[in-house]
Structure formats: structure tokens, C-alpha cells
Design a binder for these strands. Structure first.
Lengths: 110, 110
DNA sequence: ACTACATTTCTAGAAACTTCGAAATTAATC
DNA sequence: GATTAATTTCGAAGTTTCTAGAAATGTAGT
């Protein structure tokens, strides 16, 4: 078992984190992560989150611009998908210099 | 080997991500992650990042308010430490509903 | 008490973000 | 080609964030 992990630039990582750092966008993204490779239509997201279309569209476009998700048109419907390798790369960027490697206790912050 | 993982509320996770989603704060946090349990003095961070004290202080206070780091006074020096369990909890929150469990290919977003 | 050091708080202007209605776009259907 | 459906773009008002200088705070040494 392996994962594709995208190497990440500092600016790029900060941008992705900032985009995820908004309640609505984080909710959108988690729906997509949960939905998996099939993704979700914009309308399906709207149904679950119950926010105005223009607001939703704004947030989706920010997520797309950060590279965390993509949209694919299928007729009248736009299907949204999370980009897992990017997410993995982001997590990796946060953890890669972590000193808490096996063999140490991970408890800190007390 | 195990890690402490903090269960995370949605708002809390979004707040942490937002705070990490700024170039300077992400740089600060990575220095702390790298430094490990010993942490770093504010002055040591300032030396590495070369930014005005007031700006640095502003960013540190935001990271502290999000719960991602703590400060401990030691004489004249304030030592900053990353809170690893919180970081683990955040990563977990991002991934926990991820359908990309072992046995599937993780490739997506093409 | 006085001085030096480490760091924060105050302040304010500039820049960026959020929200959502209304209008525009794109695509399928009649 | 007109109609309907799905979604985005535009525009504008309100809110938050960012930056950094100046002043204030807390701490140690003399």
C-alpha cells in the first residue's frame, strides 16, 4: 500500500491551509473527502450545506484555485472532487520535520 | 508506538487551519515542529525569520489562541512550543472520513 | 532605584475576505 | 429558438486581517 504525496512549496502549503481554514470551505472539503473519487455535484453540496449558490460558488472556486479540488463538467452538472495527493502532500509538509519519530513519547504541551 | 490525538470540533479545526494558513505563521510553526519538545525562544524565532518584533508577536499570539502552541516564561525569555497532540488531532480531522483506505489505489485528481 | 533586555500592547491605514442578490453563462430539452 | 436547470460572475457593503512603529510591560542584574 502506498500513497502519492505531492512535494509542496511553502507558499502553496500556506495557501491550501488558508483555504481550508474557513468553516464553510472545510465543510465542503470534508464532504468531498468523504465522497471519495466519485466526488459530488455542486448541487449536492448545496443541498447538504444549505447556503446561497453564489456564496458556495465563491468558496468552491477558492478551493479549486488552491489545487485541493477539481471540477469536471458532466452535462449541466459540475462534479467536484478532492485531490488526495495534494492533501497528502499538505499533511506531509506539516509533519515532515516533526521530531516525534518512533521511539520517543509523543506527549508534549503539558 | 502511539500518538495522543485530540478529538476536534469543526470550528476549532477551521481556526487552526486558518492560523497555519499564513506564510509567516506556517514558518513559525514549522520551526517549532522541528525544534521539538524543547521549543524555541521568541528571540530565536525572530532571528531566523527576521521580521519586526511586533509583527512576530502578533502571529505568535494567533497561533497560541488557536491552541497549536504554548508559551512558557523562563526568566526574561518566553519559550514557544508546538502542541503535537493538537496537530495530530487536526491532521486526523482532515483525514478521518477519507475513503482512501488500504486496499484502494489512492490516485485521484487526474 | 536605575538600566538593559525580551516581548507585548496599542494604533491605524491598507489590503484582503465574506456574503449574497441580481445578472450572465452554459447545457440539455421541448 | 425558446425554456428550464445548474452554476458562475459581478458588484457592493461590511468585517477581518496584516504590518510595523511607538509606547508599555515584565524581568534580571547592578
Amino acid at each position: 500500500m502506498w500513497y502519492i504525496v505531492i512535494a509542496m512549496e511553502h507558499q502553496d502549503a500556506a495557501k491550501k491551509l488558508a483555504e481550508l481554514g474557513h468553516t464553510t470551505r472545510l465543510a465542503i472539503y470534508r464532504l468531498l473527502v468523504k465522497a471519495g473519487p466519485d466526488g459530488l455535484a455542486v448541487s449536492a453540496i448545496q443541498e447538504q450545506l444549505d447556503i446561497p449558490g453564489s456564496t458556495l460558488s465563491h468558496h468552491i472556486s477558492r478551493l479549486v484555485s488552491s489545487g485541493l479540488m477539481v471540477q469536471k463538467r458532466e452535462g449541466r452538472v459540475l462534479r467536484c472532487e478532492a485531490c488526495f495527493p495534494e492533501l497528502m502532500g499538505l499533511v506531509n509538509y506539516l509533519m515532515e520535520e516533526c521530531c516525534m519519530t518512533p521511539g520517543q513519547e509523543s506527549v508534549n504541551c503539558n
